[in-house]
Design a protein around this nucleic acid. Structure first.
Length: 567
RNA sequence: CGGGGUGUAGCGCAGCCUGGUUAGCGCACCUGUUUUGGGAACAGGGGGUCGCAAGUUCGAAUCUUGCCACCCCGACCA
């Protein structure tokens, strides 16, 4: 492609709304254009990278035995009513109405549609297992879209769904897909980490996230220093408190703590450590009040709480009336002599440690409250976030890394097939719901993550598998016929070897062309200029290392091809 | 949804506080001449309903009110 004929433009200045490298660079290099919050156009270079990745996806998934389909992006309400997600999915579901008043949503994911497909076409265990995938535009009305393609509202996603007649068959495909995922990210030259995760609202038993490690990642990953085992912070288990010996009971003291509502304020006011305090959190669990006890320096994990209590919904209480009816004061809630609700405690609490707790009356805390003697704790459960430095269940300590979630695989089980009554005839001749798995990869997000992991102050640095072109050919001065002739025939010859060439034949100054080339980040630059006039040599520059070498013009095509292959 | 910020040419910004020529600057763009190894120089030029609407005023980019869009932080940690 001759750059002078291409649709392409770069910006010298960083658009003010872009915060992270990938977003800034994609805007500056003319890869994308924002049309609305979280909604982007893919410009030619951006689209090429996206398509490169999509081809890698197709190749790996096809060889893993998955079959490509394409579902509609607009889905009728009825399907989502069947799975009971029409209301449950929440505000992120973009709903619309047609001219007859029928309701639709723009698909944020396609479990319903694929299940409907299986329901109609798969009648027998003999047709199983089946694994289908699509590469589709999705829409999720994110609470807060940000970082360009990293968290858009409209985005491109690869989603695969598998159907099975047994758990073991699901296991098999799950493993095959896991391997395929490693291959996919590896062939993009990305460092990826599979992380044990909570399956969230999609449901199901087992799930793993694929994280690209990057400082700007939105997710926290806890990694075991010994086993290397990695877990999303949402799912990282903490170790229960181990009692060496019980302390004796000590007497409770009232302390006056005016305007000390927050942990920090109590720590300063009473000159103690935050681990001496108990946080007492009033939580509405399925319409029942529960008091949750967490150590002052720890964080509650709502997902764990929800799971441990087998709850459907969890809401923090912020209504003064509620505090009044159970006789507590916001900011001074405590477990001592609180009989109005259930009390659960985090399992890392020490039952005989003399904690400082809220006094259930204004401006008062209590010292020396020992859970074992003073409080009726219903149960001790794993309720909090693990933090860096503490013990893991695998004999090491947690280390915290930041990551970008680029893929997620789930064992769904029969959640959708049961609610949507999708079944097949099993070997025993009885109807049986499909056992399902689902497997997603964020296409745009992976591309953005690839930039986060591979860029420098000059611009992007593409691995050749994702690069929009293979080689950037630069004619330093197109006004000199000798250079233009040399470039033109080099362009043709390189193209004939099957390489995809971006030929910068613009009349601009050399500086601009070099800067643009570095910004776009194509792995190899071939420069025809001074040294060609002097000694018939062309220059090759490697974008990633900055290394340069000179080659004689005659028969340089072969060498360039080899250099590219070796990239 | 709550809090904060921004909105002036394609991009980045000044002007607004203290209302008063024809609304300015840099980059980008167009024409010409020169230039071509790290974002060229000179000369000339085009491009704006100052986010939208109402109000105050003789007069509004500037003051007031409402709305909209975009960005950031937060979304319950008592």
């Amino acid at each position: 492609m001759r750059l002078s004929q291409y649709f392409f433009s770069t910006l010298k200045e960083v658009p003010k709304d872009a915060e992270i490298a990938s977003h800034q660079l994609m805007l500056r290099a003319g890869f994308i254009q924002q049309l609305s919050s979280g909604i982007y156009s893919y410009l030619p270079l951006g689209l090429k990278v996206l398509q490169k990745f999509q081809e890698i996806l197709r190749q790996e998934l096809n060889s893993a035995g998955a079959i490509e389909v394409l579902f509609p992006s607009v889905i009728p309400e009825e399907l989502w009513q069947e799975s009971e997600r029409w209301d449950a999915y929440g505000d992120q579901l973009l709903k619309m109405t047609d001219r007859l008043g029928r309701q639709y949503c723009f698909g944020p994911t396609h479990e319903e549609v694929v299940t409907e497909m299986a329901k109609q076409f798969i009648h027998s265990y003999k047709q199983l297992p089946l694994n289908v995938y699509q590469i589709q535009t999705k829409f999720r009305d994110e609470l807060r879209p940000r970082f360009g393609l990293m968290r858009g509202r409209e985005f491109c996603m690869k989603d695969a769904y598998s159907f099975h007649d047994s758990e073991s068959s699901l296991d098999e495909t799950y493993q095959v897909m896991k391997t395929a995922y490693y291959n996919i990210f590896e062939s993009c030259g990305l460092e990826v980490q599979a992380v044990e995760a909570d399956s969230g609202d999609i449901g199901g038993s087992e799930s793993a996230e694929f994280m690209i490690t990057a400082e700007t990642g939105e997710d926290a990953i806890m990694k075991c220093s010994e086993s290397g085992h990695a877990v999303n912070v949402e799912a990282a288990k903490t170790m229960p408190f181990k009692a060496n010996e019980f302390r004796d009971q000590v007497s409770i003291e009232h302390v006056s703590t005016p305007s000390m509502k927050r942990i920090e304020e109590v720590v300063n006011g009473l000159n103690c450590s935050s681990s001496d305090l108990l946080k007492s959190l009033l939580v509405e669990v399925d319409n029942e009040l529960v008091l949750v006890l967490i150590r002052g320096d720890h964080e509650l994990n709502e997902l764990k709480l929800k799971k441990q209590l087998n709850a459907f919904s969890i809401n923090f209480v912020n209504d003064d009336d509620v505090f009044n009816t159970i006789g507590t004061v916001p900011g001074y809630v405590g477990p001592y002599q609180l009989s109005e609700c259930r009390i659960v405690a985090d399992h890392s609490l020490d039952p005989t440690y003399p904690y400082i707790v809220g006094g259930n009356q204004p401006d008062t805390h209590l010292r020396n409250v020992q859970l074992k003697y003073d409080v009726t704790v219903e149960s001790y459960l794993d309720l909090r976030n693990a933090s860096a430095g503490e013990l893991t269940p695998w004999g090491g300590v947690y280390e915290e890394v930041r990551g970008i979630e680029v893929g997620h695989i789930f064992k769904l089980g029969t959640k959708y097939s049961e609610s949507m009554k999708a079944s097949f005839m099993n070997k025993e001749g009885r109807p049986s719901p499909f056992i399902m798995g689902c497997y997603g990869i964020g296409v745009g997000r992976t591309v953005a993550a690839a930039i986060e992991q591979n860029s420098d102050d000059k611009g992007m640095v593409w691995p050749k598998s994702l690069s929009p072109f293979d080689i950037q050919l630069i004619c330093v001065n197109p006004k000199k016929e000798i250079l233009t002739n040399a470039c033109d025939s080099l362009y043709t010859n390189l193209k004939n070897t099957g390489l995809d060439i971006l030929y910068d034949d613009r009349l601009d100054s050399p500086g601009k062309k070099f800067q643009d080339a570095d910004l776009i980040g194509i792995p190899l630059q071939v420069i025809v200029g001074k040294s060609f006039e002097k000694s018939s040599e062309i220059e090759v520059k490697f974008r990633s290392s900055g290394d340069r070498l000179s080659l004689p013009y005659d028969r340089c095509v072969e060498t360039i091809k080899e250099l590219f292959d070796g990239c």
